[in-house]
Simulated scan of single mutants.
Amino acid sequence: MYDIAIIGAGPAGANLARLLGESYKVVVIDRRDLESKYSAGPGNKCCGGLLAPDAQKMIARLGLGVPTEVLVDPQLFAVRTIDVTNGIEKLYQRFYYNMDREKFDRWMVSLLSLGVDKRFNAVYKGYEPMKDGFTVHFTQKGRRDSLKTRVLIGADGACSGVRKSISMGRAVPDTYIAIQEWFENQLPQAYYTAIFDEEISDFYSWIIPKNQYLVLGSALKANDKTWEKYHKLKEKLTHYGFLFHHRVKKEGAFIYRPKHANQLWAGKEGVALVGEAAGAISPSSAEGISYALKSSLFLAQSLNEGIEGFLGRYEKRLTKIRLNVIAKNAKAPFMYRPGLRKLVMQSGLQSIRRTVVNQTSQDGNIFPESIK
């Protein structure tokens, strides 16, 4: 009999297990094997792998430090923003860490205490209520199994199986499909790239260099000619100088985009939701790691005050995230409405000018040929 069973070992689930492992008997279930030999192959998390300032702040708040082996080259300091709809391009300084998302998740799992049980290569199949808890069903390496727990936590991301089990018509955030392809990259890249093109998506697309690869991704509305639009995006980007040859792998995942505060949900009747499963993710950028860490901290604080009444305490703490989502949605029109975005980009507000250098004097001093 476990005290707490957590479905999902991403940042939300792993951080929650780390914070509760000394106080309760905890088990974590995940479809990946996050303790096996590392492989950058299929099945990894579909994620751009940029650690945003809000996530950095949460990691610092938790008293952690990201090991260097999680980071990848190059570490860049600006985002090239391409507004295809309006025909505008600008450069903005940003402070992201470029990382290997799979290694980040493995690092988080490595922080768990020895008392936390881990069921990897396991797929959640549902639960049944019982007196004082739940029977949780899953398959592990193709074999059916089950366990008993007092509290069940869904940390299983967008389209959460746990959330579906308890939703009963509850409002769900807008659902998108994130598609990524990895290509061999022969050209040096000086910037991360964000692409806005209403013909492709009402969200955004991205290009991120990682070691010898170039990652192209896009957040597309589900069931809306997804692959057709993704291929059209690739074709358009060749006109901006990008080359997409020799694909190494492709990835896909559902992502949420909460438009209303009531789409964030703590859970009910002993079943709690955390991270993206709760709807905690930025509606303006789809950044989710900071929300995963923050919501898992709130849930851990609520559970460490006792299991009795923990959901009510967690619900109150989630108010901070709801207010943040409201603020992000207020910001979103300036990013995603073409007319407003055009005004912002044309103003040059917070953009930086690029210096092109190609002339050197006899004494070695470099002179800028032009400023863009």
Results as ranks from 00 to 15, higher is better:
residue 2 Y to E: 03
residue 9 A to Q: 04
residue 15 N to F: 02
residue 18 R to Y: 14
residue 20 L to A: 12
residue 22 E to K: 15
residue 23 S to V: 11
residue 25 K to N: 13
residue 26 V to T: 06
residue 29 I to D: 00
residue 29 I to W: 02
residue 34 L to Y: 09
residue 35 E to K: 15
residue 36 S to T: 14
residue 36 S to W: 00
residue 37 K to S: 14
residue 46 C to M: 07
residue 46 C to H: 01
residue 51 L to K: 01
residue 52 A to P: 09
residue 53 P to N: 06
residue 55 A to Y: 02
residue 56 Q to V: 10
residue 62 L to F: 02
residue 63 G to P: 01
residue 68 T to P: 12
residue 71 L to G: 02
residue 76 L to H: 02
residue 79 V to H: 00
residue 80 R to V: 04
residue 80 R to W: 00
residue 85 T to S: 08
residue 87 G to T: 10
residue 87 G to V: 03
residue 88 I to A: 04
residue 88 I to F: 06
residue 88 I to V: 14
residue 91 L to G: 01
residue 102 E to P: 01
residue 105 D to Y: 03
residue 108 M to L: 15
residue 108 M to Y: 08
residue 110 S to C: 09
residue 111 L to F: 10
residue 111 L to G: 00
residue 112 L to Y: 04
residue 118 K to R: 15
residue 118 K to G: 04
residue 121 N to R: 13
residue 128 E to H: 11
residue 131 K to N: 09
residue 138 F to R: 05
residue 141 K to G: 09
residue 141 K to T: 13
residue 142 G to A: 11
residue 146 S to I: 04
residue 152 L to K: 03
residue 155 A to Y: 01
residue 159 C to Q: 15
residue 160 S to Y: 12
residue 162 V to D: 04
residue 163 R to Q: 09
residue 163 R to L: 10
residue 164 K to F: 14
residue 170 R to P: 03
residue 170 R to H: 15
residue 171 A to T: 13
residue 173 P to V: 03
residue 174 D to A: 13
residue 176 Y to C: 01
residue 178 A to F: 04
residue 187 L to D: 10
residue 190 A to F: 10
residue 191 Y to S: 11
residue 199 E to K: 11
residue 199 E to A: 14
residue 202 D to K: 08
residue 202 D to I: 00
residue 203 F to D: 10
residue 204 Y to D: 04
residue 206 W to R: 03
residue 211 N to W: 00
residue 222 A to W: 09
residue 224 D to R: 11
residue 230 Y to A: 01
residue 234 K to V: 06
residue 234 K to T: 07
residue 237 L to V: 08
residue 239 H to G: 05
residue 240 Y to Q: 06
residue 243 L to G: 03
residue 246 H to L: 10
residue 247 R to F: 01
residue 251 E to A: 13
residue 255 I to N: 01
residue 255 I to L: 09
residue 264 L to T: 08
residue 264 L to Y: 06
residue 266 A to Q: 08
residue 266 A to L: 03
residue 271 V to K: 00
residue 272 A to F: 05
residue 273 L to S: 02
residue 276 E to W: 02
residue 276 E to M: 07
residue 277 A to S: 08
residue 279 G to I: 04
residue 283 P to C: 06
residue 284 S to H: 07
residue 286 A to Y: 00
residue 296 S to M: 06
residue 298 F to C: 07
residue 298 F to Y: 15
residue 300 A to S: 14
residue 300 A to R: 07
residue 304 N to K: 15
residue 307 I to V: 14
residue 309 G to D: 14
residue 313 R to L: 12
residue 314 Y to E: 04
residue 314 Y to H: 11
residue 317 R to T: 06
residue 319 T to G: 14
residue 319 T to M: 13
residue 320 K to M: 10
residue 321 I to D: 02
residue 322 R to T: 14
residue 322 R to G: 05
residue 323 L to Y: 13
residue 324 N to D: 15
residue 326 I to T: 12
residue 327 A to Q: 12
residue 328 K to V: 02
residue 329 N to P: 00
residue 330 A to C: 13
residue 333 P to T: 03
residue 340 L to F: 05
residue 344 V to W: 08
residue 346 Q to H: 09
residue 347 S to D: 02
residue 348 G to Y: 01
residue 356 V to Q: 15
residue 357 V to L: 14
residue 360 T to Y: 11
residue 361 S to H: 11
residue 364 G to L: 13
residue 367 F to W: 12
residue 368 P to D: 05
